[in-house]
């Protein structure tokens, strides 16, 4: 019996010490983790817009996020958008509620600051304060609008779609006319050497420069990638002057309207990315148009 007490005490002490060690590490790393993740996302976004180490983003560039929520109660389903707005005392956030046809219904100012709007929990709390308690609020997605001097420069769309194995997380950048600016694969679990090649420049950059019209009908072809096109794709964004301007113009003329060349041995992954990107851009293009109309009807002083 005495032994049991000894063992119990020993185990309790060990657990306490272990808990202390883990807890301390957690306290130290939690903040850094959040910050680094935020920084990473920021870098990916700026990278997609063509800014990087050697070309820092201009200070006039502003990134505004709009968060889409689905509001549901027994009677109807509505769309809610959290948008940044101009207020008397600076900047704030407003919830714009639309019906499914895209008609403007109502707007509610939200108790959110630029800091708290980043966290999903805080947004949910702010939403709960303004919508009816019977409403079920569920988060749908976020889109980022890059503005410079009051003009929209680009849209950044984070999203995920099913790949060959599991979900692929990606971010797409399109310009104000929904032409493709770039694609970044953030997370994936495709096979290395096969589907894993979707992260390579020679695949990702095939999307760059496709107009919205081309994108809508974009398909995947099972043909080998022409070597000169591959060279061009690899050089995109590196700005090392390997190709002359003439060559670049020629490549753009030849391949701008072409379909996506599938990766060798990974047609399904290639098609999954192509379809995923297509769906993301199409849905967003439809929604932002409706949101713009609604904002005009509701006379909301949006920031973007």
């Amino acid at each position: 019996m005495k032994e049991i007490i000894k063992i119990t005490i020993a185990l309790t002490i060990s657990c306490l010490v272990a808990g202390l060690v883990i807890g301390t590490t957690f306290l130290f790393t939690a903040k850094a983790k959040q910050q680094n993740e935020h920084l990473n996302v920021q870098q990916t976004m700026l990278g997609l817009l063509g800014y990087g180490k050697d070309k820092p983003a201009p200070p006039a560039l502003k990134l505004h996020s709009i968060h889409r929520y689905i509001l549901q109660d027994a009677e109807a389903t509505r769309m809610g958008y959290i948008v940044p707005v101009r207020r008397d005392n600076g900047e704030g956030f407003t919830l714009v509620v639309l019906d499914l046809k895209g008609r403007f219904l109502e707007q509610h100012p939200l108790e959110l600051t630029a800091e708290t709007a980043l966290s999903g929990e805080d947004r949910k709390k702010a939403l709960a304060a303004v919508v009816a308690p019977s409403m079920v609020v569920s988060f749908a997605d976020t889109a980022i609008i890059a503005c410079r001097e009051g003009k929209r420069e680009a849209y950044l769309l984070p999203g995920e779609f099913p790949g060959f194995k599991t979900f692929i997380k990606a971010m797409v950048a399109v310009n104000a006319d929904f032409g493709m600016l770039g694609l970044e694969v953030i997370e994936h679990e495709e096979d290395p050497g096969l589907g894993g090649e979707i992260t390579q420049d020679y695949f990702k950059n095939q999307f760059v420069g496709k107009s919205f019209e081309t994108l809508k009908g974009l398909k995947v072809v099972k043909e080998p990638l022409p070597p000169e096109y591959e060279r061009y794709l690899e050089s995109l964004g590196t700005a090392d002057g390997e190709l002359s301007e003439q060559e670049i113009a020629e490549m753009e003329r030849l391949y701008r309207e072409k379909d996506i060349y599938a990766l060798t041995g990974a047609t399904i992954s290639s098609a999954a990315v192509t379809n995923g990107v297509k769906a993301m851009v199409r849905k967003f293009a439809y929604r932002i148009q409706i949101l713009d109309q609604a904002v005009a009807t509701g006379d909301i002083p949006i920031l973007f």
Partner: peptide, 26 residues
Amino acid sequence: IRIPTYTLTIATWVTVIDLVLAAYLP
């Protein structure tokens, strides 16, 4: 309780390195 103590020790240090890597080398 030799083996449980080993497991506890290893799990603790793995959690530590896991948290650190996730935070600084995401």
